[in-house]
Nucleic acid binder design. Structure first.
Length: 273
DNA sequence: ACTAACCTGTAA
DNA sequence: TTACAGGTTAGT
């Protein structure tokens, strides 16, 4: 599920409910969903902590607690963090329930790929998956020059490069395909062959697609929901993702479906070069 | 640079 | 029954 716009939407919707609350009890229904820190188990690290702030890095949600503890959550494909103001019965796919000083936070994940990790706050940017992340694509300081620097080192196709979190943090299959369509770039193109003008086009496309995704509160193609359990609406604005063989919104020719970097890739072979 | 693995559900 | 799904990682 969540790529950058979805995680950002979860952050924004969850923040309103849980900032300032205290974690009073933790019920774990599937142990693999959580991970402690060294010899300290998850519950000992986190129980009784006050929730101070919520940040995002790429597709990771960072929840800062007091006493130098943080939670790092990754939803992978189907993970959801849902806030309930009243007691709520866990479902078949509820793996963790945090009982808070007001209401409950449920971690629900059908495919069981998502994880929540307890980490000392000052260590959190050193954990391997976070330390290796590339720049935040919607920050002010992400410029076409920075994108160009990173692309020119890569002799592989553009689709694989956009999915590589060490190049850029936060793009997944949906927003990578949509960015390439908007930039009129063929996903098969080798990243180190882009002209200056093409790099600028890609930079503009990535920023505009991600910002539009956030404005639409994410893409609920299947499972994705925000912290209130609400769907996003960006699925209504997709040009290529999930539209294989449908007519291209620009030229009317059928969209092509291929496999790149192990992922289904949809693009228009007439509009994207 | 691929593929399998981690999982379950849904649709073809 | 088989293929495939918003992701990442470990192993060829």
């Amino acid at each position: 599920m969540p790529e950058l716009p979805e995680v950002e939407t979860i952050r924004r919707t969850l923040k309103k409910h849980i900032c300032g609350l205290t974690i009073e009890q933790i019920c774990i229904f599937w142990m693999n969903a959580v991970c402690g820190w060294q010899e300290i188990n998850f519950v000992d690290a986190v129980n009784g902590r006050r929730i101070e702030s919520l940040e995002r890095r790429g597709k990771y949600l960072l929840i800062t607690l007091d006493e130098n503890w943080s939670l790092i959550a990754h939803m992978r494909m189907t993970g959801k963090l849902i806030y309930y103001p009243e007691n709520q019965e866990p479902t078949k796919h509820t793996h963790v329930v945090f009982k808070l000083s007001k209401g409950e936070l449920h971690f629900v994940d059908t495919r069981k790929f998502g994880r929540i990790q307890a980490v000392p706050t000052k260590e959190r940017l050193n954990i391997r998956s976070l330390a290796c992340l590339g720049p935040e694509p919607i920050e002010e300081d992400f410029t076409p020059e920075i994108l160009g620097e990173r692309l020119k080192k890569k002799k592989i196709n553009l689709k694989a490069v956009l999915l590589d979190q060490s190049v850029l943090a936060g793009l997944g299959n949906i927003y990578a395909d949509e960015s390439l369509f908007l930039a009129h770039l063929n996903p098969n193109r080798l990243a180190n062959t882009l002209s200056h003008e093409e790099i600028e086009r890609l930079h503009r496309a990535i920023q505009s697609v991600l910002k539009a995704g956030i404005a639409a509160q994410g893409t609920s193609f299947r499972d994705y929901r925000d912290a209130n359990g609400e769907k996003g609406s960006f699925q209504e604005s997709l040009h290529v993702y999930g539209r294989a063989f449908e007519p291209c919104s620009q030229c009317g020719q059928p969209l092509k479906k291929i496999r790149l970097a192990g992922r289904t890739t949809v693009y228009c072979e007439y509009c994207q070069h």
